[in-house]
Design a protein around this nucleic acid. Structure first.
Length: 555
RNA sequence: GCCCCCAUGGUGUAGCGGUCAGCACGCGGCCCUUUCACGGCCGAAGCGGGAGUUCGAUUCUCCCUGGGGGUACCA
């Protein structure tokens, strides 16, 4: 109930924000004209909602305005904004925490109660770890601050989108424990609404139909210079293009990057709908984010350039843009964009490799973000509590499987035996694993490590010729015979009595521990690697252990 | 080609004008030790280059170089 009220309040605030932006007639800064020196500082003319001001060039570029959501584009706020800019850094980096109402507190207030974020995967393949990280960051943001997470399926690419992929994505998110509050919303299901707004843009002259081909676009640019974006003619038919003004520039205010400035003159009039009327990504995203009242768009950096186009769509629609945060991309070990070639890339591959979802989340969270106190192992709850966009790194990160393995091992070891047993039973499809898990608990880094380490307990000794050769030679078998003799009289195996027995052999032969234990290990496990030898004997039990030793003796 | 973004050890990062440049993975050594792990200790390893601002730059500005992304009637 409380929640609904908060949401209703948010919605109306956002609506008021949009209306105000519409009334004033501007929702973004238009920067134009020469840079001039005023008081030794580069300043530039900025048109804001019909008026204009001089603003510090540096501030425009660093996108400080993005810190004042809903206020950043309005004339009456500019003075306040500028007043808040000095000194900018202290205010922007961390919440002041005092009574001072700075830009950050503004942002945080909106962020904590009204934040509406979304994860919008395209079902053209399985969910990739890069996508998973984006989903995770959005989820952490929403969960950490009582916000709302919307799941939207961007399926406007009819050729490549499949329902199987949608299933896969949903399944991967579920496995990760990433849930959402609204959706999944199918983008194609909203086509009626898209048509409506598309027509609105056409009617208002913000968009036009053109049948210009790629070659014609290239020709245009060749004629008008490489820096010049394509401008078409309204031909009344063909694909729908958005009209981009030549003058001015669009500034993407980005919480992570500051600002990215795109001069309009460089931009082509983007195609926003196909000739058949079906809408394209840049249009659909803008509309859907607007309709869903998304406040923060957190997505991969590969979308950064497109954001300028989306800003233009939003402006034509008369809507205020959300706050953006473009995450650095994930790379493989070779520094190239992560793909199938780098081994595991999809979430289910990591699941099948024996990784724990909580470990994967922890690792992914730390890829491109760091807690203030350098903490490395953070539970999902701790992550949600501490995560902040401001601390997201700007650099692309390489995916390091080794570190993931290490981290996964930490999580496995932290798990109570019973829980780990359940996970392993699910992973392997076996049952009755508890005793075996107990003795191999400390030795695994992934669930998949269990079989090679302890599978012999259930499947009989493995076949490792090298180990046999080395440890079951004549000496080894002599040792085994002694061990058998020492173990045989024991009624029942316990940790104490097997240890006593083996140490007896050790003492009698005046041998090194290794010389006694390794042959036994190979007899029991078939390999030179296994859980502790006493523990293994106990888990295997008297009869099975003796039988295996006898068998080793026989060959 | 054009546009945009980025730049601290091998990797992920901390740093926000004065630090012995911190942490983690990995790597090397030692210890523990019945194998493998785990754990503990120690160590090697970094501010891409050049100008500028400054008493002082890893930190601010510019240029270069390098990397990445975009440039689709894909998302």
């Amino acid at each position: 109930m409380q929640h609904d009220r908060v949401r209703a309040e948010c919605r109306s605030r956002l609506q008021r924000r949009d209306q105000r932006a519409q009334r004033v007639g501007a929702n973004r800064l238009v920067v134009g004209g020469a840079v001039e020196q005023v008081d030794g500082v580069d300043q530039q003319r900025v048109d804001v909602g019909g008026g204009h001001r001089l603003a510090k060039r540096r501030d425009l570029l660093t996108g400080i305005h993005a810190r004042l959501p809903g206020a950043r584009v309005l004339v009456e706020d500019l003075d306040r904004l500028r007043a808040a800019l000095d000194p900018p850094r202290d205010r922007l980096r961390r919440p002041a925490g005092g009574g001072d109402v700075g830009a950050d507190q503004h942002r945080l207030r909106l962020g904590s109660t009204c934040m509406r974020v979304r994860f919008a995967p395209s079902p053209t393949g399985a969910l990739h770890v890069g996508g998973a990280r984006t989903a995770l960051y959005n989820w952490l943001l929403a969960r950490g601050g009582g916000g709302t997470l919307v799941l939207r399926i961007e399926d406007t690419d009819r050729e490549r989108s499949t329902s199987e992929n949608v299933e896969q994505i949903l399944e991967a998110l579920q496995w990760l424990g990433i849930d959402f509050d609204e959706g999944p919303i199918s983008q194609v299901a909203r086509s009626e609404r898209h048509q409506e707004l598309l027509q609105q843009l056409l009617d208002a002259g913000h968009a036009y139909r053109s049948s210009a081909t790629k070659a014609e676009v290239d020709l245009f640019k060749a004629q008008h210079g490489a820096h010049r974006g394509f401008r078409g003619e309204d031909e009344g038919s063909g694909a729908v293009r958005l009209r981009v003004p030549d003058e001015g520039e669009s500034v993407v205010h980005d919480v992570i990057r500051g600002g990215a400035t795109f001069a309009h003159v460089h931009l082509d009039d983007p195609v926003i709908a196909r000739a058949d009327g079906s809408v394209l990504y840049n249009f659909a995203v803008a509309v859907d984010d607007m309709d869903a009242a998304i406040t923060h768009v957190v997505r991969g950096e590969d979308h950064l350039s497109n954001t300028a186009r989306q800003l233009l769509v939003l402006e034509a629609l008369g809507a205020a843009p959300p706050i953006y945060a473009h995450l650095p991309l994930l790379h493989g070990a070779d520094g190239k964009k992560l793909s199938k070639r780098h081994g595991a890339a999809s979430v289910q591959e990591f699941r099948d490799l024996g990784y724990l979802p909580e470990a994967l989340k922890n690792y992914l969270a730390l890829l491109g973000w760091g807690a203030e106190d350098d903490e490395t192992i953070l539970s999902t709850e701790e992550l949600a509590e501490r995560f902040s966009l401001e601390r997201v790194s700007k650099n692309p990160a390489r995916f390091d499987h080794q570190k993931l393995r290490w981290m996964n091992g930490r999580y496995m070891r932290a798990l109570p035996v019973q829980q780990l047993t359940e996970r392993l039973e699910q992973f392997t499809g076996r049952s009755g694993l508890r005793a075996a898990v107990e003795i191999s608990h400390e030795k695994m880094q992934t669930l998949a490590d269990f079989e090679p380490l302890a599978g012999f307990i259930f499947d009989g000794p493995a076949d490792d010729p090298k180990a046999r050769e080395k440890w079951l030679d004549e000496d080894g078998r002599a040792v085994l015979a002694d061990v058998h003799a020492a173990l045989e009289p024991l009624q029942q195996f316990t940790l104490e009595n097997v240890q006593e027995a083996l140490e007896g052999v050790l003492a009698a032969r005046a041998a090194k521990p290794k010389q006694v234990f390794q042959p036994v290990r190979v007899a029991l496990a078939g390999t030179a690697v296994s859980p502790g030898i006493f523990e293994t004997l106990v888990v295997l039990g008297r009869d099975e252990s003796l039988a295996r030793i006898e068998r080793a003796l026989r060959v």
